[in-house]
Design a protein around this nucleic acid. Structure first.
Length: 596
RNA sequence: GGGUUGGUAGCUCAGCGGUAGAGCAGCGGCCUUUUAAGCCGUUGGUCCAGGGUUCAAAUCCCUGCCAACCCA
C-alpha cells in the first residue's frame, strides 16, 4: 500500500508540473448539468439534441489518442459518455489547454463542458470546449479489460473492485434498492421503524457467541448484540404494535461463504398476528422485492462448481468407492462404464463449462447405479440394514440436488411440516427400510443417523435426541430446499421463544423459510406467557443465571400482546435474489484478517 | 482448527533447477471521428517473508504471513 513504483512517481511528477503551471488539480466545482450516462441516454432518446450544451463531471476510464484528436470516456454513477477533444478547439480557450489535456491520466476526475454530437461511428459524444481537473489520481487504476481478479484486493480495496466492475457495482446498488423496498413495504403496512441497542449487558435472542467489549466510564462489560429480538418485544409491551428494525448483528464465530461476523438482520413483529400472518408477510415481501429490484419472479442461480467437484471426487476416489472399476462391481458393463466415464469427465472439465444440466445427469446416474446394484444383489435388503453402496449412491444423489436446479421460482411457496420432511428424507435415503423416523427409539435414531445416513461426522456422542433429528434436517433436508419453502412446526426444543402448537405440544408454531438451500427467515407465533418463557430461557441458559435477561422477563410479566415475528438475514436474501454464491459478494467490506 | 490451491511488473498471467517473460497500462514518436483504436520504439521486478538443499533456486524442501475453496 505504501509502495512507490514508477507509475506512481510519474503521476506525482505530473501533479507537480500542474501545480507549477498554476493549475489546481483538486478544484471544487459547481454542479454538473447532466450525469454522464444520463446525458448519453437523453441524447439517445431525443430529450437532448445535437448541439445542446452539457456540463458533465466524472472519472476518465479510457483514453484513445489520435494525435490532434483525443477521445476519453468519462464515467459517473449514471454511466459513461465519450468526450472528443480537438487541438484547434481547445486552444481557443488557452494555448496550453490541449497540452494539459494530453497530460490527463486514466482515473483522473475532470469536469467537461461542450456540445452533444455523434461521431462518424454513431457514438454519442461531447465535443469538448473547456475542462477543469477536479481530482488528480496518484495511483494507476486496475487494467480496464481484465479487471480485478485477485479476491483479496477486491475485498480489501473494494473501491477498486467497484471502479473496474460494473457488475459488482450493480450488485451493490441493487442491495441498496432491496433495503429500500423492505423499508417501504413495512412502512406501507403501518410498521414503525426503530433502533435498539447494539451494546447489551446480556446478549439475548439467539444462541451464538458474542463479541465482548468494555465501557470505561461505566466500568462494565458489554456485548455486541447477536439478535434484535428481546428489545423489539419490549416495544410490543410498550404498545408499538407493529415494529421493525434493520440493523447489524455480530456473532463471534467462523467465517465462510455464508457467514460474516457482522451481518444485517431485519426483524419485524406484529401484535395480534401469528406465524401464519408472518408467512404471508415474508412471501409478499420477497415477491415484491424480486419484482421491483430484479424485475422477475423466476430467478437464475449460479452453479458453485467446487463443491460439486469435491462430492464427485470423494464418491469416485474414496477407498470404498461404490462406482467404477475395482469397486464392488467386479466388472463394468459397457453402459455402466459410459456413465462412470461421464462422472469422471466432470472432474476434468473447465469450471465454466460445467452446467446445472450435467449435475442433473450425474444425479440420474446415481439412481441408475443404484438400480443396477439392486438387480445384481436381489437380496440387498435382507439385513434390514442398507448396503454401503446404496448409501453412497443415495448420499451423492441428494448432495448433488442443490447444484442441479438452475432457477428459483418465487411463484410457488410450499408449507411442509418439519417432521414430514425429515421422515421423507430418511425413508428415501434408506430405500424405505425406515419409513417412520419418529417411530424409532431415540437410540435407534442415533444409530441409523450414524450408520445408515452417513451423519457420523455431524453427530456428537452427547447429542440429545432432538439434535440428532436436527442434524438430519440440517444436512439432508435444508440444502435441498432450493424452491421457496416454509418448513413449519419445529420441535419445541429448537425454538425457546415461540408458542407451543395447541394440537401438538411437542412442536411450536414456527416456520423456517428456506430458499436457495439456506434458511432465509425464521418466523414464530411469539411466546408471550412469562412463566413458560422463563422456563424455556432457563433451560436454554443451562443453569447460568447471569445469562438470563431478567428485565426482558419482567417486561413480559407486564403483558405482551400475542404477536407474530420474523427475522430475515438481509445478506442471504441478497445472495439469493442477486445470484451470488458468497456472502462476501453482497457485503461491501467483508471481514478479513487485518494486514500487517 | 484440518485439507487443497494460490501469492512473479500497476493489472491479468506464463515460466517450475541454468541470463526475469508476455499482453494490457505507462513513457517517447506518427496519425483531426476513435472506442479493448492502430503502427514504431521503450521503461518498469525485494519472483509474499525467512531459513535450508545445490556449483546454481522464482522453480526443490521447511517454517511463517495473506487469500480462495472444501471440511469441522
Amino acid at each position: 500500500m505504501d509502495d512507490t513504483n514508477s507509475l506512481i512517481q510519474q503521476r506525482r511528477d505530473k501533479l507537480k508540473a500542474l501545480n507549477e503551471a498554476g493549475v489546481d488539480p483538486f478544484k471544487n466545482f459547481a454542479k454538473p448539468t447532466h450525469g454522464c450516462g444520463a446525458a448519453r441516454e437523453m441524447f439517445e432518446r431525443g430529450d437532448l439534441k445535437e448541439g445542446d450544451r452539457v456540463l458533465i463531471a466524472g472519472r476518465i476510464t479510457a483514453h484513445r489518442d489520435m494525435g490532434k484528436s483525443q477521445f476519453i470516456d468519462l464515467k459517473d454513477v449514471s454511466g459513461r459518455i465519450q468526450v472528443y477533444a480537438q487541438k484547434q478547439e481547445l486552444e481557443k480557450r488557452g494555448p496550453t489547454q490541449f497540452e494539459i489535456f494530453k497530460q490527463l491520466d486514466l482515473a483522473d476526475f475532470i469536469a467537461a463542458e461542450g456540445t452533444l454530437f455523434r461521431t462518424r461511428t454513431g457514438e454519442p459524444s461531447v465535443k469538448l470546449e473547456s475542462f477543469v481537473i477536479l481530482s488528480k489520481a496518484l495511483r494507476p487504476p486496475p487494467a480496464k479489460w481484465e479487471g480485478l481478479a485477485d479476491p483479496e484486493i477486491r475485498y480489501r480495496q473494494r473501491y477498486l473492485d467497484l471502479i473496474s466492475s460494473d457488475e459488482v457495482k450493480a450488485t451493490f446498488l441493487k442491495r441498496s434498492m432491496i433495503v429500500r423496498e423492505i423499508r417501504a413495504f413495512f412502512h406501507e403496512r403501518g410498521y414503525v421503524e426503530v433502533e435498539t441497542p447494539m451494546m447489551q449487558a446480556i446478549p439475548g435472542g439467539a444462541a451464538a457467541q458474542p463479541f465482548k467489549t468494555h465501557h470505561n466510564a461505566l466500568g462494565c462489560e458489554f456485548y455486541l448484540r447477536i439478535a434484535l429480538e428481546l428489545y423489539l418485544k419490549r416495544l410490543l409491551v410498550g404498545g408499538i404494535d407493529k415494529v421493525f428494525e434493520i440493523g447489524r448483528n455480530f456473532r463471534n464465530e467462523g467465517l465462510s461463504r455464508r457467514h460474516n461476523p457482522e451481518f444485517t438482520m431485519l426483524e419485524a413483529y406484529e401484535a395480534y398476528g401469528d406465524y401464519a400472518t408472518m408467512m404471508e408477510t415474508v412471501e409478499s415481501l420477497v415477491k415484491r422485492i424480486a419484482e421491483r429490484v430484479v424485475g422477475k419472479l423466476v430467478l437464475g442461480r449460479t452453479l458453485a462448481v467446487e463443491p460439486v467437484r469435491r462430492l464427485l471426487e470423494d464418491a469416485l476416489n474414496s477407498p470404498q468407492a461404490a462406482f467404477g472399476p475395482g469397486s464392488l462391481w467386479g466388472r463394468l458393463e459397457a453402459e455402466q462404464a459410459e456413465r462412470f466415464a461421464f462422472l469422471q469427465s466432470l472432474l476434468t472439465l473447465a469450471p465454466e463449462t460445467v452446467t446445472f444440466a450435467e449435475v442433473a445427469k450425474a444425479r440420474a446416474i446415481c439412481v441408475e447405479f443404484k438400480q443396477w446394484y439392486k438387480e445384481l444383489h436381489p437380496d440387498w435388503n435382507q439385513q434390514a440394514s442398507l448396503p454401503v453402496q446404496i448409501q453412497a449412491f443415495n448420499r451423492l444423489e441428494r448432495a448433488l440436488r442443490p447444484y442441479s436446479e438452475s432457477e428459483i421460482d418465487l411463484n410457488v411457496w410450499n408449507k411442509p411440516r418439519y417432521r414430514d420432511l425429515v421422515r421423507q428424507a430418511v425413508s428415501e435415503m434408506t430405500e424405505g427400510l425406515f419409513p417412520d423416523w419418529f417411530a424409532l427409539s431415540p437410540e435407534d435414531r442415533k444409530n441409523v443417523a450414524v450408520n445408515q445416513l452417513g451423519l457420523g461426522g455431524d453427530i456428537a456422542a452427547a447429542y440429545e435426541d432432538f439434535e440428532v433429528t436436527g442434524a438430519v434436517f440440517e444436512k439432508l433436508v435444508e440444502p435441498t430446499l432450493i424452491q421457496p419453502t416454509f418448513v413449519t412446526h419445529l420441535p419445541k426444543q429448537l425454538v425457546p421463544l415461540a408458542k407451543l402448537d395447541p394440537n401438538d405440544p411437542t412442536s411450536v408454531e414456527v416456520f423456517e423459510c428456506c430458499i436457495n438451500g439456506q434458511e432465509i427467515s425464521p418466523g414464530y407465533s411469539e411466546q408471550n406467557d412469562p412463566v413458560a418463557q422463563r422456563e424455556a430461557l432457563e433451560h436454554q441458559a443451562g443453569g447460568e443465571q447471569q445469562k438470563l435477561d431478567e428485565d426482558f422477563l419482567a417486561a413480559l410479566e407486564h403483558g405482551m400482546p400475542p404477536a407474530g415475528g420474523i427475522g430475515i438475514g438481509i445478506d442471504r436474501l441478497c445472495m439469493m435474489l442477486l445470484g451470488q454464491e458468497s456472502i462476501r459478494d453482497v457485503i461491501l467490506f467483508p471481514q478479513l484478517r487485518p494486514k500487517v
